[in-house]
Write a protein that binds this DNA or RNA. Sequence first.
DNA 1: TGATTTTTCCCTCTTTAGGGGGATTTCATA
DNA 2: TATGAAATCCCCCTAAAGAGGGAAAAATCA
Lengths: 207, 207
Amino acid sequence: MIRLYLVDDHHVVRRGLRSYFESFADIKISGEAATAEELLHKIGEVQTDVILLDILLPGGMDGLEAARRILGQPNPPRIVILTAYTDPARAMAALRMGVQGYVRKDSPPEILLAAVRAAANGQIYLDKQTTEIISEEIPEIKLSLREQQVLEQLAGGDTNREIASTLMISEETVKSHVSSILSKLGLENRSQAISHALKNGLVRRDS
Amino acid sequence: MIRLYLVDDHHVVRRGLRSYFESFADIKISGEAATAEELLHKIGEVQTDVILLDILLPGGMDGLEAARRILGQPNPPRIVILTAYTDPARAMAALRMGVQGYVRKDSPPEILLAAVRAAANGQIYLDKQTTEIISEEIPEIKLSLREQQVLEQLAGGDTNREIASTLMISEETVKSHVSSILSKLGLENRSQAISHALKNGLVRRDS
DNA sequence: TGATTTTTCCCTCTTTAGGGGGATTTCATA
DNA sequence: TATGAAATCCCCCTAAAGAGGGAAAAATCA
């Protein structure tokens, strides 16, 4: 019997997952959470084998950070990441941190099932697209803390001057951070950086 | 008995909606579609009272355009728009075009149910946030066709020169379109336009 | 038809972005 | 301790973006 915990901020998604998985005799839903904070708060009190975890969650913490914390505990449950869009960098980061699966939300239900069962067995399951992308030996793209902060504001539409002002550094420094972000991500200008960051969930979108 | 048609590109969402609505005696699911094209293709052959329609759909056509076409037909079904983020402009546009409801995906299921039942009765149902926003008498922000096309490419990270090239117009023309987009949306630069467009679902995000 | 909007293009001018090439300090780590 | 990454700042220079002010043809609408 696989005990499965569901984490997604949308009611309909949780309900859909629950009704689907409950139709299989070997799976039992051990609980649900809508946010990363709720998950971390509740997970200590339940015994579960697998957590199906959405990446983009409202509030301060995203799914990856929640995964990191849970996997840092002794004898943690397996985690399968559920995501709307396939992002190579995030998938790599997730795998490095010990996640057991990475599947797209628009995958057919059988894929989700396969991923959960594989995770329960300690196997790793990746969907086709992710596997293809990963297998191309993509070097991990890692932004420094400062670069992430700059990217965050970049994606908010701020100018270099505004970023400089809120980070209390000079405009020149911001420019050098932006340049290294572009070079690390293989992009050509800030517009592409904004587009990339928002489309691939590299930043929160609190609009 | 309310016949309800479901349109969403995610399996889990469709499944969740179906299992939820089927638990009510007065509702019957008359069909499902994953894209706007599929909906338009299939809807002629089924009798349905209400269509629950996701706004962001893969492929060329979005939910609003599909709604426009369906509502243009004689004696059309009622349409309830389902959306991930509340966008005032889109909500206004949807209502103007005769849609019967506008609800967020993360609403509690009871809200969805209320919206569908209201639509079946010919009433209009808006969720709280949308109502609040609408009631502030927001003047409709309407981009021309050309401006939408430019915004689409803008959000993809393209430069003015690239946009000019694909639209087969001069760079100067692109600049004037960009300027009018900024002025209509009340923004200051293209970075803000990209951020705004992606965060508020003004463009598709096919990454 | 007349009026309005859309789409197109041009010019000038200022600001912003971004590359290239340094340099310094701090801090972790091999 | 040496090495390297991170973070800070500077200069010079080119290209891109955007404001302001027109203008004119085409499409749409009243």
